[in-house]
Design a protein around this nucleic acid. Sequence first.
DNA 1: TGTTCTGCAACTATTGTAGTAACAGTTATG
DNA 2: CATAACTGTTACTACAATAGTTGCAGAACA
Lengths: 140, 140
Amino acid sequence: MANNLQFSIAVHLLAGLACGCDQKGITSGHLAESVNTSASFVRRTLAKLSKAGLVETATGKAGACWLAKGAKNISLLDIYKAVDAPKAFTIHDYSEQKACFVSCHIKTALEKALTKTQKAMESSLAEISLAQIVSDVKKK
Amino acid sequence: MANNLQFSIAVHLLAGLACGCDQKGITSGHLAESVNTSASFVRRTLAKLSKAGLVETATGKAGACWLAKGAKNISLLDIYKAVDAPKAFTIHDYSEQKACFVSCHIKTALEKALTKTQKAMESSLAEISLAQIVSDVKKK
DNA sequence: TGTTCTGCAACTATTGTAGTAACAGTTATG
DNA sequence: CATAACTGTTACTACAATAGTTGCAGAACA
């Protein structure tokens, strides 16, 4: 644990919805079975996806959820941002030691490197669509 | 916390060594001041870098450490691998629900996506050398 | 021989995340 | 209208990874 699983869980959930495991709507309880966790945790993740406009939900007795767009129009980057997954790496946050100029300026240098790396990672994610994932799943 | 800071700390340490804050060797205690942590923690990180062949150390009273190669020949990817930093994202590890084929096959689909993304991230890190970081630090 | 460093291992504390539980709000349905 | 079944949200517990500390054996040098 301690590592962020929400991203892969979110992809799992969306893949499940995209496969249209059945009709037009699936309940969180149903999804929870597939991911093997509690319905409540599914809903928490789903809530973020919903806020990001990737899924739509209906409340009430016949409550359910479904994809808000076609699987082709959802990239892994959309999902990555929706669940607020962690950056490529984290910059430490020690107080600066004035006597050492490395200590004082390393942060900006690291930020520059992080920006570049993050961009590379995100554009890679952007190239993968949910439809691609679904087709990989079905291929097996 | 809980996030992995060792990578950025390692870069900080190496940048300190590369700047040759002074003579040819620096003690872990000295480095610790710059990073603002204990000497022992610095040594733990340094040990990984040493195993990866990025720094060399001397024991004994006049113990110290210094870069094993020129800063131009050390990439952030070398450092990333040396400290065993986490992957771009983590794949969840739930037991498969045989009734749901998404559950059974999502893992391989995710692995494929992870491989691609990881590669993008690593090649981005490979393009940044420690010398680049040092020059950014000095520029300020 | 004593000092001062590294190297290593064991330990504690912190904290982010998974996972659970509970409850109010909503809407089909009988 | 009452009930049942779902969502949405918050508060809580449990756990595990990491930062940070401490202590000690071993090495080198004066």
